[in-house]
Design a protein around this nucleic acid. Structure first.
Lengths: 139, 139
DNA sequence: TTATTCTGTTACTAATATAGTAACAATATG
DNA sequence: CATATTGTTACTATATTAGTAACAGAATAA
């Protein structure tokens, strides 16, 4: 498996919750859909819950539902909630003092990659969970 | 160090080559700037060379230079050359047959994330190596 | 020709990040 | 009180990435 999959797992979970709108889902049933263990799903659910995207209840009849309408949740909300990594990150090598490139490259990269990161975020903001749910239902 | 740094290392190397326009640089001098070993730099240089972005010569006086003007190289060219990972990748869990979400989520994610990937690529295409070099020089 | 010094490549090790699992306290239900 | 859930922690396994060393092939210069 490659990198950054936590985001796609979170979208999978949210789509599962949105698919049966309002129906209670447990970490076990979601884990069956994703094909992983309930514990792993709960770790993701916990983040989504803290971000106010899902509502969870503990106890015997504990379950999860979407905290908002799928049309009011963007993929950017999910992206932020799970704290997924940036599109690009800058290398962490120490600066080599006498070299002007070494001294300035990180700041230059930051300025430039900020644009790219913003374009990613704009793109994610423009896609709602509802779109993904409908797409899954339409097949 | 986090993920995706290979791209930033490649940009660092290319900026080093562009900084002293036309001057010969070796993998050793570039490695000193980045702060890593020459072997690692050569691996990246090799990819950049195959992509036609740098020109290398072997032998005793071997060295590297940019193969084009910095103004004719975009960060997207570098991104492609080093085969950096996509902005988002989709999880690789097996499909759980009876679950419609599990069966369709990957295709839905692909359709949706293609938009995001394109916006990243457009953004990288709009930034030239020359801009990064000037930024480094201007400090 | 011979020694030198580069690149290009391979093979390997170390470090890091991520996924996967198990366990259990806290909680709510019936 | 027995049960079934979340939330969290601690830990292990796996995959990815960085780092290093070694060496063949190539070009230069003595």
């Amino acid at each position: 498996m490659s990198n950054n999959t936590q985001f796609s797992i979170a979208v999978h979970i949210m789509t599962g919750l949105g698919y049966k709108d309002g129906a209670d889902m447990t970490s076990s049933s979601l884990a069956r859909s994703v094909n992983t263990c309930p514990s792993f799903v709960r770790r993701v659910l916990s983040k989504l819950s803290k971000a106010g995207l899902v509502h969870t209840t503990t106890g015997k009849a504990g379950a999860c539902t979407l905290a908002k309408k799928a049309s009011e949740i963007s993929l950017f909300d999910i992206y932020e909630a799970v704290d997924a990594p940036k599109a690009f990150s800058i290398h962490g090598y120490d600066v080599q003092k006498p070299c002007p490139v070494s001294c300035n490259i990180k700041a230059a990269l930051e300025r430039v990659l900020e644009k790219t990161q913003l374009s990613v975020e704009e793109s994610l903001k423009s896609i709602t969970l509802e779109e993904v749910v409908s797409d899954v239902k339409s097949v």
